[in-house]
Every structure is written in structure tokens, then in C-alpha cells.
Simulated assay, not measured.
Amino acid sequence: MTKKKITSRPGFFGTIKHYDSHGNKIGESRPGLFGTMNHYDSKGHKVGSSVPGLFGSTSHRDAAGHKVGSSQVGFFSTHHYGSKGNEVGTTEPGFFGSKKTEWDP
């Protein structure tokens, strides 16, 4: 299966806009309370959230609040893991505060 590529760019007031490899907006993340990030699809429907953990980790949850994965910050990239602990992708820094993510859906 082909890896998907996403570019995430910072916006105003802590928002982050997400684009596919063709430059189409596929979603947006907005800050919530206590360091959480709420994630929305391109139509503005909430699809999940991320909650910071210990030692640079992040727990990812779907819209119903079920844990669907986690992320761990490394030296040069952030590694993303599925609900079973298998690595599903990585994020690396891009230009002007953007980030490039590759993952296996």
C-alpha cells in the first residue's frame, strides 16, 4: 500500500491546517483546554483529539474518545503508532514552521 503524505502548516491562534500531497485542505487542528488539540475534517466535523502525555508523548483519540494511537517525539522526527503499538508513520520538520508527515493508512 502507498504511503500517504500530509503537509501541516501553522495558522492563526494556534490552529494547524492540513493538506494532502495535491495541496487540497483535508482538515484542521485547533487548540483545546489543558494542551489538547481538537481535530476536524475538511467540512468542519470533529474527528478526534490529541492529549499530551509524559516525556513528549501524545495520545490520540477518535471523536468518541477511544484511543486510536500515540506519538513519541524523537531527535529528528516524531514517530506515530497505531492502537496496537505498531509504527504507522513519521513527521519531520519542513520550511517556515510546516511539518511533513508520511504514514500507512
Rank of each mutant, 00 (worst) to 15 (best):
G89Q: 09
S77D: 13
G27S: 04
E28Q: 05
S70C: 09
S98T: 15
F76W: 09
T78L: 05
A64Q: 15
E28A: 03
T58M: 13
A64E: 11
G94W: 04
S50T: 11
V88G: 02
H18F: 06
G27E: 04
L54A: 09
M1P: 08
G56I: 04
H60A: 02
P31M: 00
N38H: 10
G27A: 04
S49K: 15
K84D: 11
F95H: 12
H45M: 11
R61N: 14
I26L: 03
K25F: 00
D62Q: 12
T101E: 14
F76H: 07
Q72F: 01
T58S: 12
S50I: 01
S83Y: 05
Y81K: 06
S59Q: 14
E87L: 07
F12C: 11
S59H: 12
Q72P: 02
G65N: 08
I16N: 12
V68C: 08
D104W: 06
V88H: 06
K43M: 07
D104V: 09
K43F: 09
S8K: 05
K67N: 04
V47P: 03
K100M: 08
S8R: 03
P10Q: 07
S21Q: 13
R30N: 12
S50C: 02
G32K: 03
K46C: 02
K43Q: 12
N86I: 01
K84H: 11
K67D: 03
F34D: 12
G97A: 03
F12H: 14
G97F: 02
E87Q: 14
D20R: 08
S57L: 01
D62H: 13
K43L: 12
S8H: 00
S77P: 07
T78K: 15
G53W: 05
N86E: 15
T7M: 09
R9H: 08
K43H: 15
K46I: 02
G32A: 01
T101Q: 15
N38P: 01
H18Q: 13
G14I: 10
K46R: 15
F75N: 00
D62M: 12
N24S: 13
F96P: 05
P93E: 07
V88Q: 03
K100R: 13
H79F: 11
K43I: 03
S42N: 06
G89W: 06
E28S: 01
T101F: 08
K67Q: 05
E102A: 09
W103A: 11
L54P: 01
K99A: 15
K67M: 00
